[in-house]
């Protein structure tokens, strides 16, 4: 930045308010919401994560980092971590691959393009718990339509007893909802690729599949990376409703993700201190993911 006049360092002229109070008043609602719904609970979680409380709330004891040590050494917690990773990766893959496929196909449609797009975006408006119920019904071992079909194919379908099947079910429900969102971004990403690039590639002798893998897919990399982060965050933190409706974390602990475990330990088992420690760990994970998103999505993966 070059300094002009040498008085102020601001590269962008700063808005000057004659009234000293007004700017703070204008910011107040946003600050209040952030404080009440984020900083307050976050600080409470941090505080509680260092206490040990009995289930009836009669005695509280300061224990420092003991809760964290205990949680991180707990095989159940590590198992939950593993479940979450599997769940997040599977959800991201199954939410992104079909979305990309649909977007590429929708991009080729000339007539009625708008209708296809609108219809494909609708599932996003369905509430997570409803989406979960829908899948639960479809796959219910005794009354579900798809469960019947699966059984007639010779698959013994019982997600209430079979852990991997339960996982498949929650992944399907979580990914299904996210496909619409990803679809929207992929469509926008595809539209941003100049048509002449694809034409140049076809003159250069690349067939349709080749064009996709060597030109279109690499140019979608920024979009894909962005969606990968978004979908991972979604799978980590936004799927409570679905898991709660479909499996409740079971059978056993087969679908108990980290977020679900916070709920189970805190509100069901009333181990408040450890539950708080878990949510602090989750908070660190969110911050890390957001940092990755800011650092790479907004800067690095960019073609010009």
């Amino acid at each position: 930045m070059t300094k002009v006049g040498g008085q102020k360092d601001h590269p962008v002229p700063r808005a000057i308010f004659p009234n000293k109070v007004l700017p703070y008043l204008l910011l107040a609602p946003q600050l209040a919401i952030t404080a009440i719904f984020f900083y307050w609970p976050a600080s409470q979680a941090l505080y509680q994560s260092m206490l040990r409380e009995d289930p009836f709330g009669l005695s509280t004891q300061f224990v420092g980092l003991a809760n964290f040590r205990h949680v991180l050494a707990d095989p159940n917690y590590l198992h939950s971590f593993q479940v979450t990773i599997i769940f997040a990766v599977a959800t991201a893959v199954f939410a992104m691959v079909p979305a990309l496929y649909l977007a590429v196909m929708a991009d080729k449609v000339v007539r009625g393009r708008g209708i296809y797009r609108t219809l494909l975006i609708w599932p996003y408006a369905v509430a997570p718990a409803i989406a979960g119920m829908l899948w639960l019904f479809l796959f219910n071992p005794s009354i579900g339509t798809i469960a019947v079909m699966l059984r007639s194919l010779g698959i013994s379908w019982d997600p209430l007893l079979n852990g991997p099947q339960a996982m498949i079910l929650v992944v399907a429900a979580a990914a299904w909802k996210q496909i619409s969102y990803n679809f929207l971004f992929f469509v926008a990403g595809l539209q941003a690729i100049p048509k002449s690039l694809v034409e140049a590639a076809s003159i250069d002798g690349a067939g349709e599949t080749k064009r996709f893998w060597t030109i279109i897919f690499p140019l979608l990399a920024p979009t894909s990376f962005f969606l990968l982060v978004i979908n991972t965050v979604y799978a980590f933190f936004d799927t409570f409703g679905i898991i709660h409706a479909v499996t409740g974390g079971g059978p056993g602990k087969a679908t108990e993700t980290l977020v679900y475990k916070v709920y189970n330990d805190g509100f069901v088992n009333l181990i408040l201190g450890e539950s708080a420690a878990q949510s602090v760990i989750l908070m660190v994970i969110v911050i890390a993911l957001t940092a990755v998103q800011f650092r790479y999505v907004e800067r690095r993966v960019h073609y010009g």
């Binding site: 100049p194 002449s196 690039l197 140049a200 590639a201 003159i203 010009g304």
Partner: peptide, 13 residues
């Protein structure tokens, strides 16, 4: 044939 486009259409990646 080979074509030179107005916006060059170079592969940016």
């Amino acid at each position: 044939i080979a074509m030179v486009f107005q916006n060059y259409a170079l592969y940016p990646h």
